[in-house]
Design a protein around this nucleic acid. Structure first.
Lengths: 237, 237
DNA sequence: CGACGGCTTGAGAGACCTCAATGTAGGTGG
DNA sequence: CCACCTACATTGAGGTCTCTCAAGCCGTCG
């Protein structure tokens, strides 16, 4: 678990899938081999367009991407983020067409997801990953449908911290957030102006600090109760 | 395709899956056999609770259900509807735990989804169904994040018409909608009061009529342009 | 008939948006 | 080194959409 320049150890997919299922050496070797052939996509470039023909599922090895849907009036909604170690596309059946555009939010590296033998640990990991992805969509729907701006931001910060922790991309109470406020607005269903004011409010309450690409969670429990609406016992600085 | 009391013909799953993939007689027989053993759930009853252990995937044969998430303050968000012929749970891997509560909105009948041999038409249908379900979640996210109340209702009406048409549960420009305005509010991320006003507005513009459980779409193209925001050329009565 | 659930309507409040200006940091060229 | 440009963050003022609270209505069912 130490930091070496060994790609097997540093591979976000190995870390994440290893947390989702019990991997054998063969599974890890397959992931390492897959990760030896990477594809790079620059920030702001499309990884794939809605309706594109898809080959195999892909693993995001580094950087941030997102699924996004564009509206006729120029606005857009980010469906969900894709974080290191997460899958793009489905491993359980051939998906002829992409269901949404996938956009690189930073420079990213991708690799083809190795095929998993039925019953293998890797297959279990893919299943768990798909289930997590679906749960993330459910959470996003609830966030957009029923939470206030303050709650949405709090909930998203907590979710990102949880998801990044799965691939060791987060510290116990902070993580790197390489996103502009406009991107946050597009995922939260708000305007960037209101995201700015909401962040300011969270900062001034001392719950989190956000700046120069890093989020630090100062009061995890207060943030959680804010996000879940059980905000009775407000923790005052 | 004629209406007979033959359960094979009336089976919503056979109709829907037959539209999603080319089914063999064996596939249809498997569905018919599965549908011979049904489970009934009364309106307002939970089909399964979030976190429940799951066995096999289930097919909804009749009635309306929904995935729902409850909040601490008593409010709730309906994630998506489940319509006749649609799947509950995943056919491509064992899902140990339910990701959300599933609630019967009307009296419903369920059956276990028959196992699909790899490469069979049924397997293709399950894949297509899963892809459609994911697309529905994407659409719901976009609806909640970026559409106004008027647009949300318009978009939902169009979506429901499309989905019900897949299982022959809709007429060319109308369908039965066995939902209260409160349920609509919970799926649209609005209050029932505002749903009421929004419906009134749509009616008064002559786009749709809604009453006694039936929705009729009078101006499909106008409704579509309202939902997609390309509402420049308003169609005035 | 009364009770109930769902629908409808009104009035006022609040959250979030729009428009617009200013501030700030990094990058580039003169 | 400074002027300039661009992208992003920040702040203000006013408007609008949706919510909240509250009341009345309507059909159904006991």
């Amino acid at each position: 678990m130490q930091h070496r320049l060994d790609p097997v150890v540093l591979n976000a997919a190995v870390v994440r899938f290893g947390r989702l299922a019990r991997l054998t050496d063969m599974d890890r070797a397959a992931l390492a081999k897959a990760a030896s052939g990477t594809r790079l996509v620059a920030a702001r470039r499309d990884v794939l367009m809605e309706g594109d023909a898809i080959g195999f599922a892909t693993i995001l090895l580094s950087g941030w991407a997102c699924r996004v849907r564009d509206l006729n009036d120029g606005r857009r909604q980010i469906i969900d983020f894709i974080l290191p170690g997460e899958l793009i596309g489905n491993c359980h059946y051939d998906q002829p067409r992409a269901l949404s555009t996938v956009l690189a939010l930073t420079d990213i590296t991708l690799c083809t997801a190795p095929e998993a033998l039925p019953g293998s640990g890797l297959a279990d990991a893919y299943s768990a990953s798909a289930a997590l992805n679906e749960a993330t969509l459910f959470r996003q729907i609830t966030r957009l449908g029923r939470l206030s701006a303050l709650q949405r931001v709090a909930d998203l910060v907590l979710e990102l911290h949880e998801r990044l922790s799965l691939s060791d991309h987060a510290q116990p109470n902070s993580f790197l957030l390489p996103l502009t406020q406009e991107v946050l607005a597009d995922v939260l269903g708000l305007t960037s102006v209101h995201v700015n004011r909401t962040l300011k409010s969270l900062k001034s309450e001392g719950l989190v600090s956000i700046g120069s690409g890093r989020v630090t969670i100062h009061q995890p429990s207060a943030l959680r109760s804010l996000a879940t609406g059980s905000d009775h016992h407000r923790v005052e600085g």
